[in-house]
Design a protein around this nucleic acid. Sequence first.
DNA 1: CGATCATATGATACTTAGTCTCATCTTTTA
DNA 2: TAAAAGATGAGACTAAGTATCATATGATCG
Lengths: 144, 144
Amino acid sequence: MIASRPARPDPASVLEDRGYRLTGPRRSVIRLLDRKEEGFSAEDICEELPGVGRATVYRTIRLLLDAGVLCKLALPDGAPKYSLARVEHHHHTFCVTCGNVGEFRDTTIERLLRTIGADIAGEIVGHRMEFYIVCRACLEAPER
Amino acid sequence: MIASRPARPDPASVLEDRGYRLTGPRRSVIRLLDRKEEGFSAEDICEELPGVGRATVYRTIRLLLDAGVLCKLALPDGAPKYSLARVEHHHHTFCVTCGNVGEFRDTTIERLLRTIGADIAGEIVGHRMEFYIVCRACLEAPER
DNA sequence: CGATCATATGATACTTAGTCTCATCTTTTA
DNA sequence: TAAAAGATGAGACTAAGTATCATATGATCG
């Protein structure tokens, strides 16, 4: 068995399940996203797929976000990056050096949410949590 | 003693301490921000201060962000909101109903950060954490 | 198979959030 | 009070994303 990775929902099937057509442009976008490990911007996709219209790229991204198979995260300065979701509910690490996006689940966080829920004057309806890191590879990489 | 609030660094003094001039436009911006409890956008400020140029509003906001006396947070859809900082290091709650911004410190979070630090393959250099809530007042408010 | 009709697409205009430029205006300081 | 440093405002520009609308695609039915 080769380097197994946690199962990742297939974006194409997810779109179909939701009643959307699996068209040429959508396939192109999904195929490209699927190959990306680093966080990417919508404009990256537009540039790499000159045959697909900008509006369609943004529309497809929105469908995938709504379906929960794509995540939108914010860099420290607020700039948006996207990353395909690999596991169900998770949070992100973003390497500020190489742009790699990691996912992690930590039960401490779920506990934290409950603890905070008791502290906060109101009802928690959502949250956002991102960790900016320098990943192992970048820490170990010889300066270049 | 009247409803004491945690000490808040004075934005004007902070700017002066950093060697910036305390000019008329900057005073206007700071005076306005100081009165705002809800999260506000930069354009809100521009509209409420027609005598101050847009560029100056954004520049002042940036100075205050850099100085750490103003916080920039992101709504669930990523839209930016600002809020004056009241305490040193904290996280935010944003009421999705009324827009009120709360701050809180919870030692669970600091512990969480250490725990996660051990899990993550790399070095944490920053983080972002926001909780979207419906605040007590909105929960209790009669539907309108 | 082919007509029909909902759906999707792409070009383009627009919006929002913010930065940049540069000539002018204030402050500070000498 | 003149010179230099710093701040301002008008407006052009950029980035990220949405809206509009005429055209193209593709699923389904006869």
